[in-house]
């Protein structure tokens, strides 16, 4: 079963890294994963999109066709990428963004990801890690060991505590009822 995930936002928010971490956590958990991204020539600002595909089988085609999961951290990215979702897709977006009409609100989680990073973790740049925590809780993808391994490979030494806190705060944004609703088994 091929599970296609798209991570989107504005350049500099770290959505590519979030996508990479999910892919590496998947490999640590023994799954097949392919990760890629599309971005403009500029390294900051502008629409940014990254993709992770998970499967128990060999993954041939490496691009997302119709994603079953969308993370959007900006209105622009939500508006654009909500258009081509798979029928059962789940959307996770930053609280305060307005959900386009094409998305069923019952299949969307609007979470204060940026605010949690800024106010509870204390660093707005941890928003991508907060998001990873929330994504994993909602979808129930990996156990904690695989997830922290995915994160550990990509953070500077000395920032571990900050990032574990970001993961935990992210997970805390999703209730158990919500997680039961959105859980994915691959």
């Amino acid at each position: 079963m091929r599970y296609e995930m798209r991570f989107s936002g504005s350049g500099g928010q770290g959505v590519i890294l979030a996508s990479v971490i999910v892919a590496e956590a998947a490999v640590a958990a023994g799954l097949e994963a392919v990760q890629s991204q599309a971005y403009g020539p500029e390294a900051r600002g502008g629409l940014c999109r990254a993709e992770t595909i998970l499967s128990r089988e060999k993954i041939w085609y490496t691009k997302v066709i119709r994603p079953s999961f969308l993370l959007a951290l900006t209105q622009d990215s939500l508006d654009k990428y909500a258009q081509n979702l798979a029928p059962d897709a789940m959307v996770m977006a930053d609280a305060g963004l307005s959900l386009p009409a094409c998305v069923d609100p019952a299949r969307a989680l609007m979470l204060p990801i940026l605010a949690t990073a800024r106010d509870k973790v204390g660093k707005v740049m941890t928003a991508n890690i907060v998001a990873v925590g929330a994504v994993n809780k909602a979808l129930g993808l990996f156990d904690e060991a695989a997830l922290t391994e995915g994160v550990r490979r990509h953070i500077p030494a000395g920032t571990e505590e900050l990032n574990w806190k970001a993961l935990a705060e992210g997970a805390a944004l999703v209730t158990d009822e919500q997680a039961a609703l959105f859980r994915r088994s691959l």
Binding site: V20, E24, A33, Q35
Partner: peptide, 9 residues
């Protein structure tokens, strides 16, 4: 670019 910028195990 497909292979260069792709990550996989």
């Amino acid at each position: 670019e497909i292979v260069g910028h792709m990550r996989e195990g």
